[in-house]
Amino acid sequence: MTVSIERTWTAVCPASAVPEFSGVAALVDGEQVAVFHVDGDNWHALSNWDPCSGAAVLSRGIVGDAGGVPVVASPVYKDRFELTTGRCLEHEGVSVAVYSVRVRSGVVEVGSP
């Protein structure tokens, strides 16, 4: 038997509101989601909650790369999280939730996790 899970999408903002290499926070079903624009069509979304500080701030981190892998560095203690997997580079076993994100007709949409 195959169970298919319907993913719901929430529009959060125009793509033009998020410059390349930056992030914004959005409220999606009461959850705080950090949406990142890397470059071109590359978008990622993680939970906004930084497990290393306990503050909801990941969207305000600096976006760049570590060895070519896109990462965001939390603004509080500078721990880095991979944008594709949510994995923390500084602490083994620590990670944050990954959300799906897409751009439709110039609008950024976040999918249920």
Partner: peptide
């Protein structure tokens, strides 16, 4: 311009971040 994406959060919001964000 692009400079905003280079700044640490303190500079980005011209204020000092505290432990609870």
């Amino acid at each position: 311009g692009e400079q905003v994406t280079l700044q640490d959060t303190n500079d980005k919001f011209l204020a000092n971040i505290q432990r609870n964000g």
